[in-house]
């Protein structure tokens, strides 16, 4: 087991940014979103991004600022209603938005990180969500085949990490973060504290460090 210290500076992420890349971001209306990495993306000038996450927060919070600053080409999310910019750009035809039921989004990401070809869900049967999807009837129940999602980069937030990247989340900030840690080629996590490897009780680890590529320390004020 590697005990390499995974801590980097947020600016060290910048060489990984590419126009047109796909980024998963943790968070639910901004809670659990790594603001330091959103800021780095914004400052880097990277554009034409596809972003995958629960929602686009507000125009001034969380991932929402990337939308408001027109860095995003496509959004895959369950909810965009709290960010007026997302709706405005979508209606103007400037932003592609794929709306996915929240539970389906979670499972598509989980599938993408778990080696699964997709999941079968009853959610969306009999609604416009069916459009373009394979429908299966098994034991008399209708299911939609929902395909996996993956990303080039995941930007996540946890509360505590050890130097090997083992993670502990806090309260409602967990949400999509553990799922996305499985589903991206490079996984970067903003944390409020980093302790020496071995200092987190192994029974308390929520995401194993082997899934984490880099840690960015942003201490709480």
């Amino acid at each position: 087991m590697t005990n390499r210290n995974k801590r980097i500076a947020v600016a060290d992420l910048r060489p990984r940014f590419r126009d047109g890349m796909t980024i998963m971001f943790g968070g639910f209306l901004g809670t659990g979103t790594p603001d330091s990495m959103v800021r780095e993306l914004l400052d880097s000038g990277v554009k034409d991004l596809t972003i995958i996450g629960n929602d686009t927060a507000l125009a001034t919070t969380g991932i929402g600022v990337l939308v408001a600053n027109r860095r995003v080409k496509k959004v895959i999310a369950s909810h965009i209603g709290t960010n007026a910019e997302t709706g405005k750009q979508m209606i103007a035809g400037e932003l592609d938005v794929e709306l996915v039921p929240q539970g389906t989004l979670a499972e598509r990401i989980r599938a993408g990180g778990s080696g699964l070809g997709g999941v079968l869900t009853p959610t969306g049967v009999g609604t416009i969500i069916e459009k373009g999807k394979t429908k299966l009837t098994l034991d008399g129940v209708d299911y939609l085949v929902e395909r996996p999602l993956r990303a080039d980069l995941a930007i996540l937030k946890a509360h505590l990490a050890d130097e090997s990247g083992n993670l502990v989340y806090r309260r409602a900030a967990r949400n999509f973060n553990p799922l996305m840690a499985l589903a991206a080629d490079f996984v970067a996590v903003e944390v409020a504290s980093i302790v020496p490897t071995g200092d987190i009780d192994p029974d308390h680890v929520m995401t194993p460090g082997t899934l984490v590529d880099a840690l960015v320390l942003v201490e709480e004020k």
Binding site: D55, A77, S78, H79, I80, G81, T82, G87, M90, L99, P101, Q102, G103, T104, P122, T123, G124, V125, T127, I129
Partner: peptide, 15 residues
Amino acid sequence: KMVPGMGGAMDLVTG
């Protein structure tokens, strides 16, 4: 008019 997204509603009503 109003396209905020379904959030968790479809899963809740289904399940």
